[in-house]
Design a binder for these strands. Structure first.
Length: 262
DNA sequence: AGTACCACCTGACGGC
DNA sequence: TGCCGTCAGGTGGTAC
């Protein structure tokens, strides 16, 4: 479930392992994950170059090559990065592998192949073309209120819509709404100003806590929903059973006692 | 504008 | 044992 906090951790991992190392070889095991680029083009653009910097926009990781182009990674549902030295590790589901001249390798691992690897000359242009809203973690309250204005649907669907704000997915939208005491099916246009502010503040709080916890639910605070987000889960505050139902085709988990506004 | 539903994709799991 | 349906959830497309 790589959402904004998970991708932020991947960014930190990439920065710590793969920046400024000369790329010796690019191996594409499954061209299906490539977007608007062929394996040959990818190899030609990266071989002999280094990665200069990274930025994250929503769930996308954009990596600047020293040539000025950008490698784009999206992790789908099951994607992650793995940096290692021994090829004998026999890592499964490696779709693309970058080998550096220092003998280390960076793998784009993606079991369900819903992830994407792309290349662009223009990072801003890519974000525009993808129709992505502003990064959810870099949004101020005034802009958040502006985006909310005129929307009518369920708050959970709103938060997950990457066109409005980029980075929130199914799992973290549940946490944000739990922290805010708001039902996932509450209508955006029926929320008070105070509730909208609360959602915004909790969104930033949840991101902050999640990144500090290395996006590992096992390390989340006791009053967080995520570790309880399963069929037998109980509300960490009220201790009653959690409810789950489909909201815009996604499974929403919530506490029917603590979260109101249905 | 919003929602419902489908497809992509793989592996885990429960039922029989 | 092994087959089958269902589910997980990010994205994108279509129909209403």
């Amino acid at each position: 479930m790589p959402e904004l906090p998970d991708v932020e951790i991947y960014k930190q991992y990439f920065d710590a392992t793969s920046l400024h190392k000369t790329i010796d070889r690019v191996r594409v095991n499954n061209a299906r994950v490539l977007r608007e680029v062929t394996a040959a083009e990818l190899s030609r653009s990266l071989k002999g170059h280094t990665f200069r910097s990274t930025r994250r926009h929503g769930k996308y990781l954009l990596i600047e090559v020293d040539s000025g182009s950008w490698l784009i990674l999206h992790f789908g549902m099951t994607g992650y990065l793995k940096y290692f030295k021994e090829m004998a590790d026999e890592l499964e589901h490696v779709r693309v592998l970058w080998s550096f001249t220092n003998g280390f390798h960076l793998a784009f691992v993606c079991q369900r192949m819903l992830g994407e690897v792309g290349l662009t000359e223009d990072a801003e242009g890519f974000i525009k073309a993808k129709n992505l809203g502003p990064d959810a973690a870099a949004l101020n309250l005034a802009d958040f209120k502006e985006i909310v204005r005129g929307k009518r649907g369920a708050i959970k669907s709103f938060l997950m819509n990457q066109k409005y704000l980029a980075g929130v997915g199914n799992v973290y939208s549940d946490e944000i709404l739990f922290q805010s005491g708001i039902h996932p099916q509450a209508k955006v246009n029926e929320l008070t100003e105070a509730q909208i502010k609360k959602v915004y503040q909790n969104m930033l709080k949840v991101f902050d806590v999640a990144v500090k916890s290395r996006a590992d639910p096992g390390q989340f605070p006791d009053d967080f929903l995520l570790p309880q987000r399963h069929k037998e889960g109980r509300c960490p505050r009220f201790h009653g059973p959690l409810e789950h139902r489909k909201v815009s085709g996604r499974t929403a988990y919530f506490c029917p006692h603590c979260q109101t506004g249905d």
